[in-house]
Design a protein around this nucleic acid. Structure first.
Length: 152
DNA sequence: GCCAACGTTGGC
DNA sequence: GCCAACGTTGGC
């Protein structure tokens, strides 16, 4: 079982949205980056956990934990011309984009701010903290995961 | 296969 | 809203 960090803009789809979904579960679709796709398609497994990270907002940081409840499968929003995630190069035979399903596990009483994460030497080297990092899905080591949980 | 131009991300 | 950093596209 592996650990991850998944970014989302709270105004678009934040942890509050996930909490209110039926079964508190949602397909993590619309990812259009190959590295992130590869991780969802090839590496993420049912039972993995991920930090839910709010990006592009007043207080960027980790706001809770989600479980991966369905492993990588084709992101069909790429087939839909009406979708903002439509990709004409994606086909049924060669879906090009993948998604996983995530389920709400918990929301932290307060955000673990990006600034806070940056302050801890124990988290040096964490992928999301890398300079210029824009990847919306990044791996988290067991040591990093456990350390961050002590900050809650 | 190079690389300039372009679009996007995301912290600030 | 700014802009640095990054990924993708497409002409050559």
């Amino acid at each position: 079982m592996k650990y991850w960090l998944m970014k989302s803009e709270p105004e678009t789809f934040g942890i509050e949205h996930l909490k209110k979904r039926p079964k508190q579960t949602e397909p993590w679709d619309g990812v259009r980056n190959y590295q992130a796709r590869n991780m969802m398609r090839d590496e993420m497994q049912v039972g993995d956990k991920a930090f839910f990270y709010h990006s592009n907002c007043a207080e960027p940081g980790i706001v809770g934990v989600v479980n991966i409840v369905k492993a990588g499968y084709p992101d069909t929003t790429a087939f839909d011309p009406e979708s903002q995630y439509y990709d004409p190069k994606a086909t049924q035979e060669n879906p090009r984009w993948y998604r996983v399903d995530v389920k709400f596990e918990k929301q932290f009483a307060q955000t673990i701010a990006l600034q806070t994460l940056k302050q801890h030497p124990a988290l040096e080297g964490m992928a999301v903290l890398a300079r210029g990092s824009r990847l919306s899905i990044t791996p988290v080591t067991t040591a990093q995961w456990n350390f961050i949980l002590t900050l809650v």
